[in-house]
Simulated assay, not measured.
Amino acid sequence: MIRLSAIAAVACSLSLAVLNTPKAQEKAQEKAQEKAQEQTQAEGCPRLISSTQPRVLPAAVSVDELALTFVGHATFLMETPAGLTVATDYNDYVKPSIVPNVVTMNRAHSTHYTNHPDAGIKHVLRGWDVGGGAAVHDVTISDMRIRNVVTNIRDWQGGTDYAGNSIFVFEASQLCIAHLGHLHHELTDEHLKQLGRIDVALVPVDGSYTLSTPQMFKVVQQISPQIVIPMHFFSQSTLRRFLDMAREQYPVEISQTPSVVLSRQMLPIRTKVLVLPGR
């Protein structure tokens, strides 16, 4: 959807004499659209309103919704209104029951990636560059945009593997979802700028392998999402430790099912923690 302010800014720059002809009006509108699109794409987590044509939708998810299922560990399965399926931190141990169209991976441990993804997966997005350097992803597949924000991880010798992993951001149905992956450090201002507005954060809460619980809460405060969904907690006792601290700051909701249908309409005014059961 084109911003009215952007259209007005361009329209005001045109002379009234030129606007008198239909052809000139059409050309002015096209310029306004281009300017608005450039401005939107420069922002973090853009495309808040879909500009695509109406389409036939699967019965389970409407045009303004996104289905999210916690498979387990750090793997979530998302389904868009167009039927696109995406799995996070796809690996050989914890897998969704279907072969997804798209998978993302991080390489801190083998439970976050695989060297042998299913041949039926059409798009494999790794959070690290196998050739060295930083991975760069910004792709639109069907009705979802997927991009990454590079992070570092600790290596097995206690050093730093620069640009070893990524936070993946998924944009669909007017929502921006960030999977923090195997995050090993707090975020910089540049990270936050690249992330942009985040509605739902999928957060590792193990308290040791990634970040300590207080450090992870600081990251949550940095991002300031509407919904925090814990993952990567290994045991119920680890999850309880995180939730005990969470209740000091945020309301906590315990779901009875591993799936939730997300939409902008259901987002809370203030941050809440939503716990989805998973293995």
Rank of each mutant, 00 (worst) to 15 (best):
V205Q: 07
T80I: 09
Y93S: 10
E171L: 10
T114G: 05
I177V: 15
D143G: 02
R264W: 02
L16A: 04
D64A: 06
A28D: 13
V130D: 08
V139A: 02
T85D: 03
Y209C: 04
V203R: 05
N165A: 11
L14Y: 14
G159C: 06
S224A: 13
M144P: 08
T40W: 11
V102L: 15
E190A: 10
G181Q: 06
V10K: 11
V103R: 07
V149K: 03
D244W: 03
P268L: 00
V150F: 02
R264I: 02
Y209M: 08
N148Q: 03
I223Q: 12
H191D: 13
D206V: 00
F242A: 09
E253Y: 12
Q29H: 08
P214S: 03
C176I: 04
S224K: 09
L19S: 14
I229Y: 13
E26T: 04
K272I: 02
Q236L: 10
L276T: 00
E186F: 00
E79F: 10
R240K: 14
V252L: 13
V219E: 06
S235W: 08
Q194H: 13
T257S: 15
Q226Y: 01
L19G: 14
D161I: 00
V275E: 05
A201L: 02
P230M: 04
E248C: 15
K95V: 13
D129V: 00
G196D: 14
L14R: 14
Q265W: 03
A28R: 12
V150Y: 03
D189G: 13
G72M: 10
N91L: 06
D199L: 07
S255P: 01
L183R: 08
F234Y: 13
N148G: 03
H232F: 09
L14N: 15
Y162E: 12
R145S: 04
K122C: 06
I98S: 10
S259N: 11
M105Y: 01
